[in-house]
């Protein structure tokens, strides 16, 4: 052990280990936060996350602006066969309950081109509001894994039910009616 105190710079000797310890602690906190974020599931209940949606007709819609109405939020893509299968049912729900306060909102995700989405809307005669989810922001907010997924939101802006896969008119209409019957 001959005198070579200077083998390692003094700063490193003094601060090296505390710096490493601090780095590990910071890394742990960041990783923990990331893990918590990744493990966050779909919002199956509680307040529905708010978002702006640019509709295909150019208007911008905000979910919070629809407070007081029941919202059926539907994530879809033109290339997904179950989305095609459920579109007529969604349109029928829109036609039957719009006057009672139901808003069906279509969020188009992972579409290769907006033209394809428009063609899909025209072909199936869809009348409810539809817009593209750029950069998958809304899909990430709702933790959508693959289209179709739908979220039923009550008049107070609370998520009440999550549907994974195609919506069927007869399976969902009772639930919608009961939500419509609730006071705001």
């Amino acid at each position: 052990m001959t005198g070579n105190e200077r083998a390692i710079p003094r700063i490193a000797a003094r601060w090296g280990c505390p710096a490493l310890l601090l780095a590990v602690i910071v890394a742990t906190l960041i990783l923990g936060a990331q893990l918590a974020e990744r493990n966050r599931g779909r919002p199956a209940s509680g307040p529905a996350p708010d978002f702006p949606l640019q509709l295909f007709n150019g208007e911008t819609l905000r979910l919070s602006g629809l407070r007081g109405q029941v919202v059926l939020l539907n994530f879809w893509a033109s290339w997904c066969p179950p989305c095609r299968a459920e579109a007529p049912d969604l349109q029928a729900l829109h036609e039957d309950f719009a006057s009672n306060g139901l808003r069906v909102i279509g969020v188009n995700m992972l579409e290769s081109s907006p033209a394809k989405a428009q063609a899909f809307i025209d072909e199936l005669g869809i009348g409810y509001a539809n817009g593209e989810d750029t950069e998958q922001r809304i899909a990430r907010l709702y933790r959508v894994e693959a289209p179709p997924e739908s979220f039923l939101i009550d008049r107070r802006g609370q998520v009440r039910q999550v549907y994974i896969g195609s919506i069927r008119y007869d399976r969902i209409s009772d639930k919608i009616q009961s939500l419509l019957a609730e006071a705001t």
Partner: peptide, 9 residues
Amino acid sequence: IACQEWKEE
């Protein structure tokens, strides 16, 4: 399928 779509695009 999503990837096939993208490749067509």
